[in-house]
């Protein structure tokens, strides 16, 4: 695996840093604006020109989880902690399942090509490239017939299938990159195929599989359409809950919305930083490696 960090062709000094800093700041500004609004009181959030200096408050984050009572006094659970749990639980379970099956399949596709191997891989990729709206129509109807709508089983099964093509293509790209000499040597020494897979190939791709896991969790974490159609009150995930909060109401509490979004996107921004070197492979389903 190449060690070159996110691609550079030459060296520049601090002047380039300054230019890039200005551009990055403008580019990142929409996200920064949301982060900032999350810590603002309502008057500060509405103030124009934009207030960059303000006394931060945690009130919005408090209201994410506890809905204020109109009569005053205590408050009721807004359900958001449950939606966060759902997003994590559904994402984590389905990605784990997809990755286990995907790694096995990828190893098979990489090391023991079948007749029509490329056709299988193409069909698998197509199931991921197809507009989700096409898949949702029959799945919606079938889920109702089998009583899977609004259940954890249903949405986890669906997300497992949704993540499988991604896992297979990613894992295959890592297996394809491995140096074959070591495993051939092991085969020569009489290692079983299982031993070659388990002791030689797998340990070399752990890093890549970890990156694949995180990417798939983010994809699932961000997914909206399937969740919108197939989750119920019990299984609702965060993106759906957010869309429901802004829909319908007349006066949206943007401080509250920003606080929810902040909690939702901070993990993603941090992960982006950690995975920078794998990002290209991740966003192209492993089709482009460098």
């Amino acid at each position: 695996m190449s060690k070159n960090r996110t691609h550079v062709i030459g060296k520049s000094g601090w002047r380039r840093t300054l230019g890039a800093a200005v551009v990055s700041a403008i580019y990142f500004f929409p996200v920064y604006y949301i982060l900032m609004t999350a810590f603002k009181t309502r008057p500060d959030a509405l103030a124009m020109p934009i207030k960059f200096l303000f006394t931060p408050t945690m009130d919005n984050f408090y209201s994410v989880f506890v809905r204020a009572d109109i009569q005053g006094g205590g408050g009721t659970d807004s359900g958001f902690s449950h939606y966060f749990f759902n997003s994590l639980f559904i994402g984590g379970t389905s990605v784990t399942l997809a990755l286990i099956m995907g790694t096995a399949a990828a190893y098979g596709f990489s090391r023991f090509p079948l007749r029509g191997n490329d056709t299988y891989l193409f069909i698998i990729l197509t199931t991921r490239m197809l507009p989700p709206i096409i898949a949702i129509i029959p799945i919606f109807v079938l889920f109702r017939v089998f009583g899977l709508s609004g259940s954890y089983t249903g949405i986890i099964a669906l997300y497992t299938a949704f993540n499988l093509p991604f896992s297979i293509w990613m894992a295959k790209s890592f297996f394809d990159d491995l140096d074959r000499d070591i495993e051939d040597a092991a085969r020569m020494d009489g290692s079983s195929e299982w031993r070659v897979f388990r002791k030689i190939c797998l340990p070399q791709v752990y890093g890549g599989l970890a990156a694949t896991f995180v990417f798939a969790v983010i994809l699932t974490w961000n997914e909206f359409l399937f969740a919108l159609m197939l989750t119920g009150t019990e299984t609702r995930t965060v993106p759906v809950a957010i869309a429901r909060t802004i829909g319908g109401q007349v006066g949206v509490d943007w401080g509250l919305m920003s606080a929810i979004e902040t909690l939702f996107i901070i993990p993603v921004v941090l992960v982006t930083f950690v995975l920078q070197n794998q990002l290209l492979r991740g966003v192209t389903f492993g089709t482009i490696r460098k």
């Binding site: 800093a21 982006t272 920078q276």
Partner: peptide, 22 residues
């Protein structure tokens, strides 16, 4: 080109891509 703090500034530019469409 490589320049000081490049990795951190790059993160700011790359972040939007990883956000959810919704």
């Amino acid at each position: 080109n490589e320049f000081p703090l490049r990795r951190y500034l790059l993160m700011l530019v790359l972040a939007p891509m990883m956000l959810s469409l919704s």
